[in-house]
């Protein structure tokens, strides 16, 4: 019997695409997989255990080794800088990190304020631009901040741009493109080498096939 591998999956946006990808790679996940409210799902016939976590927490589970593998957005990886191997670009959940704000506005000269869910990424970006800013950490609905005067700009992920538009915000700069990645704990990468290599190979085949189909 092969070793059990534990995979941390992000709830929400990425989840369904990730499940689809695993199915395309030939993993037999039960049909009720997506609808379950369970936080731990065992798929005995694949010797896999899935844990469903907040996207920001996937890396924490993997770094501490309670999950061998995880699927995480590059945005979270840039923000958290966890000690895990980034093995594969799954090329799902495309989006990008951007600076946005109210149209035709300038940032405050004295103390420009940036609201974001990604304080480290935002701080690093403005440092590189040579701008001194003050970061305000928010946990969601970042678009509110400039609307009600909490900040001059926001740094957030943009996928279609609809949320920005509907709230009357415009994009100022694009920071970096984001896709989801397969990450692995450094110990699991060695101790469960065979199972992980197999998963990586099967997923790569699917991803490359997809790339050919949708150039």
């Amino acid at each position: 019997m092969s070793e059990l591998v534990t995979v941390a999956m992000p709830k929400g946006r990425i989840f369904e695409e990730a499940v689809e990808l695993l199915r395309m790679a030939g993993y037999r996940l039960p049909p009720e997989f997506e609808d379950s409210r369970k936080l731990i799902i065992d798929v005995e016939e694949e010797r896999m255990r899935f844990i469903l976590a907040k996207p920001m927490d996937v890396l924490t589970y993997v770094e501490h080794g309670v999950a061998d593998l995880g699927i995480a957005g590059k945005d979270v990886m840039l923000e958290e800088e966890r000690d895990v191997y980034e093995l594969l670009d799954l090329k799902i959940s495309h989006c990008y990190l951007a600076v946005a704000g109210l149209p035709n506005t300038k940032m405050n000269d004295v103390a420009p304020k940036i609201a974001t869910k990604y304080p480290n990424v935002a701080a690093a970006y403005f440092r590189e631009q040579g701008e001194q800013v003050e970061i305000i950490k928010l946990n969601g609905s970042i678009e509110l901040a400039p609307l009600i005067g909490l900040s001059d700009r926001i740094v957030d992920i943009v996928s279609t741009g609809r949320t920005l538009k509907e709230n009357g915000l415009v994009e100022y700069e694009r920071i970096v493109d984001i896709t989801s990645r397969l990450v692995v704990n450094p110990v699991s990468y060695r101790m469960k080498d065979e199972r992980i290599s197999e998963l990586v190979e099967r997923l790569s085949t699917v991803i490359e096939g997809e790339a050919v189909r949708q150039p």
Binding site: E63, H64, G65, N185, P186, V187, R190, M191
Partner: peptide
Amino acid sequence: FEVYAGSVGFP
């Protein structure tokens, strides 16, 4: 070199 044990998430 590093040394790992199955049940521990860090070397």
